[in-house]
């Protein structure tokens, strides 16, 4: 699907420290997902009614934005490995912009709910919805900052090392992976 020169020995793509963080984050999200599922099971009608108030087109757009951004990050790493640092910088920048679009879109959605007077304490559904989405929102925000930082460094005389690039990429893909589960779970199921 994508051509990245594979290595002979199994190697972790990115820093071990980042992977420890990723596992921890996945664990947190995973527990919350399972808690959501359990709560859903107990209050099906409440959750269905809540889901009906969410905007699926906006969330679909967001999914595409994140997936595309992930693909761009992969391109950036390919470019960086080939030594095309400026090109990599643009790929990173593109991914960051898509991430920003996600944030903007999501913010509008959250703003809309807040205008309607909905908060974490409104109902069990909104607690989960707002809590999960906001927690993920913060992760995207962090990811965008990281990608922007990587992009900036690509245009500087001393480009970032591959370890940093792989690590940034791995974090971003984790954010993507979480959303890929979160979106169908909260919006569609």
């Amino acid at each position: 699907m994508l051509s990245i020169p594979s290595r002979s020995q199994p190697q972790l793509p990115g820093d071990l420290a980042v992977w420890v963080l990723i596992l921890a984050e996945l664990l947190v999200f995973g527990v919350f997902f399972l808690a959501y599922v359990a709560a859903f099971h107990g209050h099906v009608a409440l959750f269905r009614a809540g889901q009906a108030t969410l905007s699926i087109p906006a969330a679909t757009f967001n999914t595409l934005a994140l997936i595309t951004a992930s693909a761009l990050v992969v391109q950036a790493i390919v470019a960086l490995q080939a030594g095309h640092t400026r090109k990599a910088g643009w790929w990173f920048a593109g991914a960051a912009v898509l991430g920003l679009l996600f944030l903007l879109n999501k913010w509008l959605e959250l703003h809309h709910h807040m205008q309607a007077g909905i908060s974490l304490s409104t109902s069990l559904f909104y607690m989960f919805y707002l809590g999960l989405v906001f927690f993920h929102f913060m992760h995207v925000l962090a990811g965008v900052l990281i990608l922007a930082w990587m992009s900036r460094r690509c245009f500087q005389p001393r480009p970032p090392g591959m370890n940093a690039a792989w690590s940034a990429g791995a974090y971003w893909h984790m954010v993507d992976l979480v959303w890929v589960v979160l979106f169908p779970l909260v919006y569609l199921l």
Partner: peptide
Amino acid sequence: TPGYWQWLGSVFSAL
């Protein structure tokens, strides 16, 4: 305090 702390507190402190 609000009820959502039961979820947040449980999950994070379980870790």
